[in-house]
Amino acid sequence: MNIVVCMKQVPDSETRVKIGADGKSLDLSSVNFVINPHDEFAIEEAIRLKEKHGGEVTVLTLGPDRAENDIRKALAMGADKAVLLRTEGDFQGDVAIALAEQIKTMGSDLVLFGKQAIDEDSSQTAQLVAEYLDLPCVTVVVKLDADPAAKRLTAEREIEGGTEVVELPLPAVIGTQKGLNEPRLPNLKGIMAAKKKPLEKKEPVNQASKVETVGLELPPPRAAGKMVSQGLDGVPELVRLLHEEAKVI
């Protein structure tokens, strides 16, 4: 199976947000970047499928040059090669179209995404790319079985209070969710090998984005409230405050 994994580089989840001088972008000057945590499940699943069924795993990223650092980490985990759709600063184009146009040239059987990027939280790129490529798509997948000979997948997706079991043909697009697998840490051999793996850099197709950010705002700060007495002594006071003051019980 030829598998494309779409990976995004994002600020890590411990990042404290600072808004940039333009008021509509993040100040990224002191940010630590990581592979989008949800994408790690996609990378791991792609490698496992390759190990089981053969084929090749290509990492596809849209982003600036700094993304190369995390692309190399995915290659160290076991992906074979990578494509970086290189952008300068904030990409003003349509990300899903840029990815879909690139994937069209790659002849893949399966395209994997994380369920959402933890910076923008939109959880829409996999579905949009699937629509642009006219492929079936299952999102928020926690279990995946592939039968490459029959060109079929069985995917379990998370819904409120349960799962849906979906059967679909390849080629397809899958959005992965925590629970699907336990992403591996790259070993030293993988890290050394990753340095020599091919990374192609090219310009993304740049079609104007359909949306525009007009500003960013921080949420109103929350102040610390009341401390009740310590230990068991505090319980009656807490129950009374929740009942009479906050009126939530």
Binding site: S209, V211, G215, P219
Partner: peptide, 14 residues
């Protein structure tokens, strides 16, 4: 909200 609510995006659809 973005980043799980650390920051809010004001946006329009064009």
């Amino acid at each position: 909200p973005m980043m799980a609510g650390k920051v809010f995006q004001k946006m329009i659809i064009k």
